[in-house]
């Protein structure tokens, strides 16, 4: 009965949404034209990076805050778990030396790709998000090859790295608030400020995304 109702509701949703979408009038605001017109004032040449870090910078600021919050919650949940996790048999698979060697060879390359993406973000597709994701992927690869242990409890330096991107972004935001408006950069320094924020974001995003994996996988690493 429930299944029938839900399927019926989903089909109605599809029909109504498709109908609404196909009758939609042309957009009254041409956002891509507005972005193209102001691109020279943004300090970067790639429109998506300009939107992410200049025109709608507060979105990105809140996003890194949300990520940090998620990591803190996982840290809070897992701690308790580690203290009363019962000991179970360790059935960790043997990792082949081929995988370990490959991981060792790939990691420097991945770090290089991450920095290329960060640098490329100012004038072509790429940027802090993709670079951070590649860094996190390198950490996950190292963890799967048993070269990098799970995080039990991050130390002070790691915590600084995790929060650093958000703090740099917040400091730039506060500085621009005193100058005039929130995240409105002066024209001459816009490019340099965006690169500074993006570098911080890359490191922090990489660490946070890696941390999501390394913290979640800790309860079956050392404790169990």
């Amino acid at each position: 009965m429930k299944r029938l109702l839900v399927v019926l509701g989903a089909v109605c949703l599809i029909v109504l949404l498709l109908g609404a979408m196909h009758d939609l009038a042309p957009a009254s605001v041409e956002l891509h034209a507005a972005v193209a017109a102001n691109l020279t004032a943004s300090g970067v040449e790639h429109p998506v990076t300009a939107v992410l870090l200049n025109f709608r910078g507060y979105d990105t600021l809140l996003e890194i805050a949300v990520l940090l919050l998620a990591l803190i919650v996982i840290l809070a949940i897992g701690r308790e778990e580690a203290s009363n996790a019962e000991a179970t048999v360790d059935v960790r698979l043997l990792v082949s030396p081929v995988l370990q060697t490959l991981a060792k060879l790939a990691t420097p390359l991945m770090i290089m790709v991450a920095f290329y993406l960060l640098w490329a973000g100012s004038f072509r597709p790429g940027g802090a998000f993709q670079a951070g994701a590649v860094l996190a992927a390198a950490a996950v690869l190292l963890h799967l090859a048993e070269l990098l242990p799970s995080w039990q409890s991050p130390g002070a330096r790691l915590r600084l790295g995790l929060a650093g991107g958000f703090l740099i972004f917040l400091a730039v935001g506060a500085g621009s608030l005193m100058q005039g408006a929130l995240l409105e950069y002066p024209l001459e320094q816009a490019g340099a400020l965006i690169l500074l924020i993006e570098s911080g974001l890359t490191i922090s995003l990489g660490l946070i995304l890696a941390g999501l994996f390394l913290l979640l996988s800790r309860d079956d690493g050392e404790t169990s």
């Binding site: 429109p47 992410l52 025109f55 709608r56 996003e63 998000f129």
Partner: peptide, 13 residues
Amino acid sequence: PVPQAMVLTGIVV
């Protein structure tokens, strides 16, 4: 680029 940037944020969230 505007919805593209928003979706980029959305994927990470």
